[in-house]
Design a protein around this nucleic acid. Sequence first.
DNA 1: CAAAACACTGAACACGTGTTCATTTTTTGA
DNA 2: TCAAAAAATGAACACGTGTTCAGTGTTTTG
Lengths: 349, 349
Amino acid sequence: MTNSRRGRSASAEDVAKLAGVSRASVSRVFSDQGNVARETREKILQAANELGYQVNFLAQGLNRKRSQLIGVVVARLSDPFRSSLLEGLLSEIQRKGYQALVTEVRDANELEMTIRRFTQFRVSGVVVTSGQPPADLVKECVQHNIPVVGINRHMDIPYVDFVCSDNKMAASLVAEQFIRCGCKSIGWLNYKESTWSGINRGKVFYQVMVEKGACDESDLLQITAEMDGYEGGRQAAHRFCEQGKIVDGVFCANAQLACGFLDGMRENGFDAPADFHIIGFDNTPQTAQYSYRLTTIHQDVLETAKRVLSRLEARGQDPHIVQSIEEIPVKLVIRNTSPNFEPTMIRAK
Amino acid sequence: MTNSRRGRSASAEDVAKLAGVSRASVSRVFSDQGNVARETREKILQAANELGYQVNFLAQGLNRKRSQLIGVVVARLSDPFRSSLLEGLLSEIQRKGYQALVTEVRDANELEMTIRRFTQFRVSGVVVTSGQPPADLVKECVQHNIPVVGINRHMDIPYVDFVCSDNKMAASLVAEQFIRCGCKSIGWLNYKESTWSGINRGKVFYQVMVEKGACDESDLLQITAEMDGYEGGRQAAHRFCEQGKIVDGVFCANAQLACGFLDGMRENGFDAPADFHIIGFDNTPQTAQYSYRLTTIHQDVLETAKRVLSRLEARGQDPHIVQSIEEIPVKLVIRNTSPNFEPTMIRAK
DNA sequence: CAAAACACTGAACACGTGTTCATTTTTTGA
DNA sequence: TCAAAAAATGAACACGTGTTCAGTGTTTTG
């Protein structure tokens, strides 16, 4: 009786009627726009409270031609780093008053369908955490004035911004650590069909190593995993040992590979840091655990998320600003698998 | 020129004009409702294709009083099981043609705000993967005819359905395994301020153990972790050893606690299965890895997700069906920390 | 062959909001 | 005190869809 006629939720019309004002004023109060006298505002708020009124976001979005939704494209959430990145994004999206529309995507075709559906919801922005945004789809977004931001990759697509962990900085930190520890023959472990960021990390790492004179071309050993993830790293280690190869230090494209490789080496009787140093990427919780204590590059997901939203809002304001590519600083977290040993202590075995 | 006037996306009106029919027919084609001649349908589809027309979901939802969104409440995605559960839900939600509106929630207050926002988007359903749905908020959903389903808990809220892993079955499987292995003094490890499902698992486990005569009251040892997650389990193990206690077999409320406890015991010189058996809950990827090889209860997240959506749709059709509480069968995955040993092999040390 | 059933179409309304524009009321400045 | 400026208000339109209802032409039925 006191509220919502016939189960339907109250509309601004109902509130206006009860408060004895026009619907326009109600709209003004709830969209915080235009002027409204303090007295009538209070009347309206009280009536709204009594009726349990809440703005209908669908109608609001229809009118404004823009919803307060943000589309997020994710993939392989089973990877701990991916899920922690999503966690950061969600946190920041909500803090800014938006709502996340999350879609998991497997192949490029699904990505196309997904982004198309995002536009149908008139999202305020699209965040692509994985996979390469197809050029024509992005063009469609630009036509609709929907900002697009990609994470941990950068490419030359006009009007699409990118936020990426600073792979060059990561490479430098790792190279310096290896040099400091006296590592001579260095390995780079990556998945055969890696992501853009994986490939880029390897490329930059190689450049930096040569730059610093830490190794000749022949010294940098490419270790290729046939599978991704923990199991891929482990099998790579087994193959590595079978072939009788040897390394001082290994840098891995991600945490999963690193843990797997370390365990695989252990199964073959080698351990870090006694026999070799190993450094991972992505400071996932697992790498900190007792069984691993992995020295690792730490990506700041919260800072990443903040930059992403900041870019979205900037381009939402003015769609024609120049493309921005931001690099987020990383840290080297020193743990057991590459401690601050004296050079002489390495290869003690 | 060929499409969308002035950057605005094409509307059904535009399509109708180009195809030389009324807007009503366009709507009929795209909502797959009512009759429309094959010939005109084709004209319309061609015109739509030419203009790149796509239904505006906001307008559609406004009219239908229901969007094709489904609200998902999550918490602590850093827990691998939580993220794999979300993965399953996303997959199923998309397969059914919906879109997931994901919100991470920390305290009960946030949960309230969140569900309220869900109703503002006129979602087709709400999935609560964590936290207790506040009774009055749920009442609000029921008033709006929005179905609500909770996961891994069940409570007596009218018109709210629950889907829960079969904790009784899990307890039986574990109890039988411990009995088969000749374990005598059993421990139950849980976080001090555990979730509903954690507490329930412990309660049911205790019941089953007594039922089967596997242990007296005095034999079941409650091990309480002061923190949640890996570190909590590890510290619990240290305290446990300090107090000089001893157990045959330990059952853990979740995988994180289990891994932590195992590592903690290892730091104290005890290992499984040589010194004790340990069985975890949630078959997360980590538990399968070389360093753990944890025997564990496996929850079927995909089946859970399927049931959830099935319940959502059922109650969407008829809001007044009786409350349904479904139990999803679980499996015991035998690995190294509680293998199929002969009874005599246990406690060999 | 008339009548009834059927397939198809378009005009008009409803959904709930934001916003413009003209109008009324209040405040300001001398 | 009065003109001018500022603030507050309400009527009306637009956003893009689904759906009802009446109307037209076409096929089936008895």
